[in-house]
């Protein structure tokens, strides 16, 4: 590779190449849109990859019903602005049963995210799904291929992945099998923010510091987002200047105290951070291998 391309241009080109390869080789790709900063960058790259055409695949959001209101608003505004088709998939049965993050812990994530995702992929017959996972995020993600093969049961076998060489991807598969594809594999968290700054991309306002009502649970700051939030006896929300480094379902995503109200503030804060990005994701703490386990079962 030539060093003459700047670092971000090189990452951008690499991601664009991945998008195009999937569009050329797969029958029915779908873009898993999770609304956060990584999805925002990935969507921008997809727009670049196919310009002046629109990306030749729909977006899909797995809505657990527990996303922040600001995320849903941002999602709807984004697809309207770009004129892209959006599928919103929900585990309706789980919702009817009232599965929620307060009472059902790890099972909630499994039912409302992993199972909802698998069911939606199957229902629509998608054979390739783009996800915004990065290898610097987490140990089991550091191990995953760019084109990550899934069996007909949508399972990942980390001990027996397809070898992958250069940027020569193998997109072939039999009916029922599928691929999870990660165009941001080689991006770091800093690259993402740097790119958002350079390309002037809009992001969900929750990333910026604001005064929000919070309670402290197991050392984590949980924002009291709506009336469904259950307060323990005697627990009184406090107003604090907080922001999010990573966005998921609100009762399971911790905020941290911060006064970073602009993109440069966020990057400056990140440069001196001493905790990792997913530190605020409570679902990762279930047990040590939780990400690998979830991934094997079909979680992104």
């Amino acid at each position: 590779m030539s060093d003459r391309l700047s670092h971000l241009k090189r990452l951008e080109s690499e991601s664009i190449r991945i998008f195009r390869e999937v569009a050329a080789e797969c029958r029915a790709p779908v873009f898993l849109y999770s609304i956060g900063k990584d999805s925002t960058v990935m969507l921008h790259l997809a727009m670049k990859a196919f310009f002046p055409s629109k990306p030749p695949f729909p977006l899909m959001h797995i809505d657990t019903g527990w996303k922040f209101r600001e995320m849903i608003e941002f999602r709807d505004a984004t697809v309207a602005r770009l004129g892209l088709p959006l599928i919103v998939a929900t585990n309706a049965e789980g919702r009817r049963q009232g599965i929620n993050p307060f009472d059902h812990g790890g099972y909630y994530t499994h039912a409302m995210k992993t199972e909802a995702l698998k069911a939606a992929l199957k229902q629509h017959g998608f054979d390739a799904a783009f996800g915004g996972a990065r290898r610097d995020e987490e140990k089991s993600r550091a191990k995953e291929r760019v084109f990550s093969f899934r069996t007909a049961a949508q399972e990942w076998d980390p001990k027996n992945q397809r070898p992958e060489f250069w940027q020569l991807y193998n997109g072939r598969m039999n009916p029922g099998e599928s691929l999870r594809v990660f165009p941001l594999s080689n991006w770091t968290e800093l690259d993402i923010w740097h790119y958002i700054m350079l390309e002037k991309l809009d992001i969900v306002p929750l990333y910026f510091a604001a005064v929000r009502p919070v309670v402290v649970r197991d050392g984590s700051l949980i924002v009291v987002h709506d009336e469904r939030m259950r307060l323990d006896p005697g627990e009184v929300p406090e107003q604090k200047l907080v922001r999010f480094r990573s966005l998921g379902c609100y009762p399971l995503t911790a905020a941290h105290e911060s006064d970073a109200a602009t993109l440069p503030d966020i990057v400056a804060e990140m440069l001196v951070a001493r905790t990792s990005e997913r530190g605020g994701r409570l679902i990762d703490r279930d047990d040590k291998d939780s990400m690998e386990k979830k991934k094997r079962e079909g979680y992104f």
Binding site: D136, T188, E189, L190, D191, A268, M270, L271, V272, A273, R274, S276
Partner: peptide, 10 residues
């Protein structure tokens, strides 16, 4: 990851 040493001035 891309964090800098904690004492490095930004």
């Amino acid at each position: 990851m891309n964090a800098m040493p904690p004492l490095a001035p930004v």
